[in-house]
Design a protein around this nucleic acid. Structure first.
Lengths: 186, 186
DNA sequence: ACCTGAACACCGTTCAAGT
DNA sequence: ACCTGAACACCGTTCAAGT
């Protein structure tokens, strides 16, 4: 039996607990049984609120992704908007590193986070990328940024050396991308 | 009891089986018990040859990494050597995608693969990167390439769209890196 | 010295039985 | 209608007991 009050679990309650457990021990460290214990509930009761562990992670993702705040379409130079978008994305990744790292390598879980691709497109057009190259360039640059962030959140950045100040290294990485775009498309 | 001949397991035999299982079902799909079955051996016998599952993966890595063939130091332009190094690294990653993907996000398992960093340094010096920026630039570019490769091996590249021809997308990605280096350091 | 069965402490998930 | 205990098919690893 559970020591809980009569009210059933809310989605908010569940996902707050999921994020707590994932932050503490990664998605691999999350288990239905631990989550149930965290919520003071019978493990099997969880299946009444969520289909399975995968759906749990997907829901946690949606919760976090909804917090992405995209840079506005003011008249700022595309270089500055690129940096703003990259920083906004990084801050989401860093808010729950283990979750982001896991989701980023599970294609089925990656979804359009609040119109990010549209914003990215707009910026690349401003940078002079021709329409037919746009999807490829967008995808490649996304893999570059997510590669850096994976290295950062997985601890590889520190291991590889040369980047004691991660913020500075990130800015340098974005600078290199901007320089590459300028050289090829401006 | 085992149906094996008297001879004990060899490391070659074990790692060949590990790679077979990892290729088929990823590192997450590898288990000591399945490996033992694959080798027709008692699960507990494996612990006589290897410390634990982690050591197993580390050994498999070393096996694969030893196959990396670095580009020679001929007088080729640094742009061409950059492409050659990137291609050599990609072909290793692609030879056992699941293993590479797993190892790449476990910092403790990433090791210098046959002097790759030295070769990378030499190329970047030729590209005009100043000595004090070298470690940072090397690390950032590594995260870019490994980000692309992770996206490719994890199936994210196809999911994101814009890259039906992965080889072409990879060349485009390296082109962008080269353009960035030329713009900032040449 | 080498090998291994049973056991321990975990998983995700199903399902029949309870209220 | 909702909940849950027992069960199933898995894990990695330990350890005492066997040869």
């Amino acid at each position: 039996m559970s020591a809980r009050r009569g009210q059933p679990l809310t989605a908010e309650e569940i996902y707050a607990a999921v994020l707590r457990l994932v932050d503490a021990g990664g998605v691999e460290g999350l288990s239905m049984r631990k989550l149930a214990a965290e919520l003071d509930v019978n493990p099997m009761s969880l299946y009444h609120h969520v289909e399975n562990k995968d759906a749990l992670v997907r829901g946690a993702c949606a919760t976090v992704a909804s917090r992405l705040r995209l840079p506005p379409d003011d008249g700022a130079p595309w270089q500055e908007q690129t940096r703003a978008l990259a920083r906004a994305y990084r801050s989401i990744a860093q808010s729950h590193p283990s979750l982001w790292s896991y989701v980023n390598r599970h294609p089925a879980l990656v979804e359009d986070e609040g119109g990010m691709w549209e914003v990215f497109n707009r910026i690349l057009v401003a940078a002079g990328v021709p329409a037919d190259e746009l999807p490829r360039v967008r995808t490649v640059l996304y893999t570059f940024v997510s590669g850096f962030l994976s290295a950062e959140t997985d601890g590889l950045l520190g291991e590889l050396g040369g980047a004691e100040d991660f913020d500075a290294a990130f800015e340098g990485a974005v600078d290199l991308i901007v320089a590459g775009l300028e050289a090829r498309y401006s």
